[in-house]
Each structure stands twice: as C-alpha cells, then as structure tokens.
Design a protein around this nucleic acid. Structure first.
Lengths: 398, 398
DNA sequence: TAAACTTTGTTCATCCACTAGACAAACGTT
DNA sequence: AACGTTTGTCTAGTGGATGAACAAAGTTTA
C-alpha cells in the first residue's frame, strides 16, 4: 500500500535533482526559469541543482535563447553523450546488439544469426558482440553505464534466467557472469517486457501509460505497462499470456494445458497450418516466404494471415477486457504481416469487445519492429544510471 | 514513469508522520524507541511526531510496558475510535451497510433486501441505511470520516457510475449526490475492487501483495491488487474478466461477445443449468436451494457445482498465467459452495497451470463472504482520512 | 534615445525538518 | 548501593528549500 521508507532531506534533494534532469531531457532546450515554473521548484533551488548537473557533465549550456520581453535565457541541453548503454536482444537464432547514447539513439549495431548453438557457443557469440560494441564506444565522461539483455524466457525476481524453453536454458545466472566479466551493471529482462518498454519510450507507445505489448514470434509473449510502470508479477513470471486458454477442449499444448492462445495465433502455428494445408513444396519455408506469397496475391497464404489475425483478436479481446488499456501494440516478427492481419484483428475487436472498453482504445502495430527489445533494455540501463546513481560515484558492480 | 512532484520538507514530514502512524496501527502496542529502530528515524524525530499524533487524538498512551533491562517504555496505542467510517455494499437486490471504527471493526450493521426497485426507491433505501448508521455512531473527535460505496458496475476515473447493468443505472453521480447531502467525503468503487481490498486488509489476503480476487455472484467480477495497490485500468474499467472468452465458438453472451467466462461459471449459469436439467420443480429456487440439495447428497446438484468449479478453474488458470499472482481468492456468494467447488477447481489448476506459476501460489476462498466489499470501501475511506488528511483541518467535502 | 518595464539567474538570510549526542529518569543486575 | 541499560526529551547543528533582493540583459514606450 505505502512504501516503507523514511524520508529526509537527502531523498528530497535526490528526487528534485532527478526531476530537474528529467525536465531537461524531455523538454530541452529549456531555461532555468522554465524549469522552475514547470516543476514548481524555487528559482534558486533549480539554479543550484543545475550547476551540480553541469559539474557532473550530464547537461550542457547552449547559447542564449529567445527573449520574451526581458533578459535572454541560457538554454540547457541534455548531454546525451555523457555515457552509453548496451542493449542486447538474445533471440533463439540470432543476437542483436546495439550501442545507444543516453537518449536511446542507436550509435552502432551488430547482429549475428545462427542455428542451434550450445550454451557455450551462444555465450561466446554474446561476448564477441559486446566486445565489438565496447570497442566502438566513443570516449565520454562515464563510458558504458550498463548492459541490458532481453531474453525469450522467464526471468525471476533476482534476474536469473529461470527457463528459456526455446534456448533450452535453465537457471542461468547471466547477470552474474557478465557483471563479473565486464564490471558494469547488467540488467536481464524478459523479451516482451523489454519490448513493451521500448515501444513506450521510443515507439508508438509514447505518451501512453497503460500498454499491453503483444510480442508475436515463434510463441506469444506479453509485456505489461500498468500505470506507467512495467508490471512483472509476483515472481517476475507475468505475461505468460501465450498460454491463456481460448478453447476449452482445444489441442494439447506442450505446456500441459490445452487450447492455448499461441497454438492459434503465433508464427509457429502459422507455419504448422501452412505445412498442413500443403501450401508449399520447398523444404525451408518461413514467415518471410509466406509474406512473399501473400504479397504476390496467393489467396491461401492471405487466408492463413487472416486466420492468425482473427485469433490474435480473440486473445487481445480478452486482454482488453482484463486490463482496459489505452493501447495494444502488436510487435515482433508477426508485425511485419500487418497488411493482412490488421483488418480481421480490428474487426474482431470492434464486434466483440465491451463498448466501454473500446473508449480511448488504440490498437497499433510496432514501428520499431525487431529493435524494440534491444532499445528497451538499453533504456533500462540508461535510466538506472541517470536516476538512481546520480549520487553514487561508484557505478560499478552492485 | 516517475511522478512529477516536487519534494520539500513538508512532504518529508507528512510522509514520516504517516509512517509512524502506520507503524503504530500495525504493531501496537509499541514504544517510541521501537518505532525509531524499526523505521530508521531518529528518536527525537519520532518523539515529536508522536506528540503531534497524541495532540490530534489519533493515538493514546497506555501504561508502561515491560522493561528489557532498563527504563520501562511508554506503550502507544492506535485510537481506533477517533473516528468512524461507513461502508456500503450496494447489491442488486440488497443493501448492506456497516459502520466501522478506523481499524475496520464493525460497530453496527444494517441490511435490507428487496426486489426490483426503481432508482429513486433504491436511493431512498440507501439514505435510510446511512441515516441509521449515522445515528448509531458513538461520539468521537472526528465523527464519520467518510462513506464508501461498492457498486456492481463500472466506475470511471471521476468515480461516476458509468454503467451498472443489473441495476439498470447509467451515468449516475452518486458521489456528488451523497457528498452534497452528508457533507462528508464519499468514495465509489466497483464491488470486486472493494472486495479485493477488503480481503487484503481483513481477510485471507493479509500479507499478500499480488492478489486476484474473483467475485462470483450473478456475474463474475475481478479485483486486482498488483504490487500492493489496487489496479483500476486506464478509465477504471479493468477487471471485466467475466467477459473473457474461454470458448471461441461458444454461446452468445448479452455483452455481444461469445463464449464468455461468466456463461460457464457464475451463479446465473448455475441456475440456468439447473433449470435446463429440470432438477427442481419449485418455482423459486436459488443458490441456497441447490446448496441444500447438494448437502443432502443429491448427486445432480453436486455435479452442477463440480462443473462450476471446473470452469472457474479454466478462467482462473488464464488469470494465473497472466498475472502470476501470489494468491487467488474466490469470493462473494459462490464461495459458500466451497465444499464442492474446491476440488475440481484445484485439480484443474494443478493439471493445467504452468509449473513455474504454481510456485508460491495460493488459492483461497473468502472468509469474509458477503462482508468483504463493505469492509473494503470502509477501509478506503478510513485510510484516506488517516494518511491523506493528517494535515488538513478541513475534512469536509473536497 | 532615454526611461520604464520584464525576464533571467545568483546570492543571502531565513525557515524547517531531521540528526547526533548529551542528559535525566526509570529500571534491572550484581 | 553501585553500575549498566533502556527510554524519552532537549538542544545545538546540518542540509536543503524558500523568498526577497539584486544585478544583468533584454524589450517597450514616450
């Protein structure tokens, strides 16, 4: 209900300093006077906090701004290159790594694809990517402030990877391993959670506070932004919506349940359907193949996507009735098939969702596509640094 | 993401004072020294805050406690009769009103049952109940600090009743009406949300922070406690889980969707099934009738409950996979049939829920039964008074 | 063009809440 | 009875926010 924490002037100062910094990041260029009026803080208070931030190289003064009938203000800018953040999307058959500045702009990027690596080989690839990104980092006051990793699996409260079924990992303490090797704070998050945050910060989810992000890939994962914060559940296992029952007496699922959503609306199910209907003769067909076929007007492929769209609608309808979100974002690989999926999905929702839940509801497709997860985890690290370590000189291993 | 609020010493003091008060409420009798060590505040700070609380009559000093080898401490007690709170459960065919002290102990209680009242008649009944409770209030420093009302319908962000289908109400500003009449802060909440909070504070949900409360009555409503706070969704419409699809091509529901959960697991569906199977010859049969029959060993009635239990399991399984809660509480009228429902429900979950979500999971039946909603809203009002109005002398209409 | 007004940002005295430490009172132990 | 311990109060000191005064640097007006 209420957080059990004592309050003193140190906390006050730290919170106010964060507030000022946030104001500058969100609304730069901005003057000290503007910050004072928009935060409600006293001019003097703002002045001294700004001076500290200047000393810490987190912000810069730019030239004078426009006068509004008096002395011209000194404009302040966020120094987004005071440090850098690494974000990694650890996929089943690829690793995508990006280096971003503190505002989330991608500075360099590296991706490898592969097939069925052992755990050791995969970690080796991961090291190589991180090393390459580290090497490409420009010099800056704070260097790399953190590494964030999004994984397709269950991450518990202690940020250990409890289970990543498609990677065949169990109880892996990647955080510990990487922190030991690089001596930098490491954050591990579920891929869908990170994607949700990425969309909120940089994608179509900007300016929304209650977002359901549906990551449709091989399986279906869901990331929840509730009241502006990522909701992770009791043990960090929430969002296992792929295994929501949508057909009581439906097909058996590998999870032990039956009629699970991801048996009807994921990439896996799409490919299975395609195989069943004997649509293709070639051996290696993929989502991309089917998209190409649909593009060339093949009606069977289009029907496959329409079915996927409808069943996505079934699950999303449930989600809307549960959460009454402002926005639903469909992301990950399946978002590339928006062209055929959108209409059946939207139609289902229009017809089936409670009218009062449709109020103010937006259904969008990701525009970051494959980058949302990496951007999300990179942003986690950057914010951890900016808002929680402002007072700590020690920004190494926690 | 981060709350936009400036911090100053007034906030610090208010928060610390709340912290001290909370500590006394939760752990009384407690000494000043104990509060200092458990909150981390300085002894002097605690001393001055305690003195203010004593002046405000919110706490009392009791006799000296036991010595632990030194001076005997002065024990502090929460003055739970410094004020009173009214909680109302506005049902479809009943109104239950309770008067509680600030700790949630029921001091007096009044209930009326009826059938199909108009809006005006219903409000009249409500006034009568409130008037009776007001009349029964002992004299105290603060009097009645608030009225809380739980309603079976959708309450929007402004606490207006947007839609209560079973009452046939639309856009009713009950809060405004009552505040005008009684000149006391009024809180309106959805019945399931209030019930969830009631269970968290006073029932089986104590000491849990991620709770899904399933209110199974005529329909099914759900209240969510996430991270210790009530989650209400974007417009306050969350928890409409009764209309979650569990059977894609299922029966049509009045909501426009098909295969909704409450068509399979609510009191309404149970009665409908009973009628269909021609179990009874009498005209007026009810949940109680069927419970009686099951009690007397009639297997058909028992089967009906077993079916309800299974279908409750289907929906609850979905909920668990979505939220990974610590606890699921089944409440409201159907909880009275725990005896027959429990086993099929638990069995379904054991077999179908993802193993890692079953970790630390408790499934419980309400022990407050029909009182959880009224207790919940009464607690809302009491806490609003205790923690938010500590500094306000004006505790009348906001 | 000068005077008057506006806006910005700094400085300084003041206020307020928490803290540390001293201290007295009250109690148990030896 | 002497000593140590615990409790609770009091006082001086610290840190941070505030408001007002003020200088600097603009624009507007007569």
């Amino acid at each position: 209900m209420r957080q059990n924490k004592t309050w003193n002037q140190h906390v006050v100062k730290k919170e106010n300093k964060s507030l000022v910094l946030e104001e500058i990041i969100e609304n730069s260029p901005i003057s000290r006077a503007d910050i004072a009026s928009s935060t409600g803080l006293n001019k003097g208070t703002v002045s001294s906090l700004v001076n500290e931030l200047l000393d810490e190289k987190l912000i810069n003064e730019s030239g004078p701004g426009k006068s509004s009938g008096g002395r011209r203000p000194v404009m302040l800018l966020f120094n987004q290159v005071a440090g850098y953040s690494i974000g990694i999307d650890l996929g089943v058959n690829y690793i995508l790594g990006i280096l971003t500045d503190l505002k989330g702009n991608i500075c360099s990027e590296k991706k490898v694809s592969f097939n069925k690596l052992t755990y050791e080989e995969m970690v080796e690839e991961l090291y190589e990517i991180i090393d390459a990104l580290v090497a490409s980092t420009p010099s800056s006051p704070y260097g790399i402030v953190g590494i964030g990793i999004g994984v397709p699996g269950i991450v518990d409260k202690d940020k250990k990877i409890l289970l990543a079924p498609n990677l065949n990992w169990r109880n892996v303490d990647l955080k510990g391993i990487l922190q030991e090797k690089y001596n930098i704070p490491v954050i591990i998050e579920n891929e869908a959670n990170a994607g949700a945050y990425g969309e909120k910060k940089f994608g179509v989810g900007k300016n929304h506070n209650n977002i359901v992000y549906v990551s449709v890939g091989i399986g279906i994962g869901v990331g929840l932004i509730l009241n502006g914060n990522l909701y992770s559940g009791n043990n960090g296992f929430s969002g296992e919506l792929g295994h929501m029952t949508i057909e009581v007496n439906g097909t058996k699922c590998s999870c032990g349940n039956q009629g699970c959503w991801e048996l009807y609306a994921s990439e896996k199910s799409l490919l299975l359907d395609a195989k069943r209907s004997d649509l293709q003769n070639t051996e290696d067909f993929s989502l991309e193949t089917i998209i190409d076929r649909a593009n060339s007007g093949e009606s069977d492929s289009i029907h496959l996507f329409e079915k996927t769209g409808k069943y996505l609608g079934v699950g999303i309808n449930n989600i809307i009735n549960i959460f009454n979100p402002e926005q639903v974002i469909i992301g990950n690989r399946m978002a590339e098939a928006e062209k055929w999926i959108r209409k059946p999905l939207i139609d289902w929702i229009k017809n089936q969702t409670l009218w009062f839940s449709q109020k103010d509801l937006k259904v969008d497709f990701s525009n970051l596509l494959t980058h949302s997860t990496a951007l999300g985890v990179a942003a986690f690290s950057a914010e951890d640094f900016l808002y929680h370590n402002i007072y700590n000189d020690d920004i190494s291993v926690i």
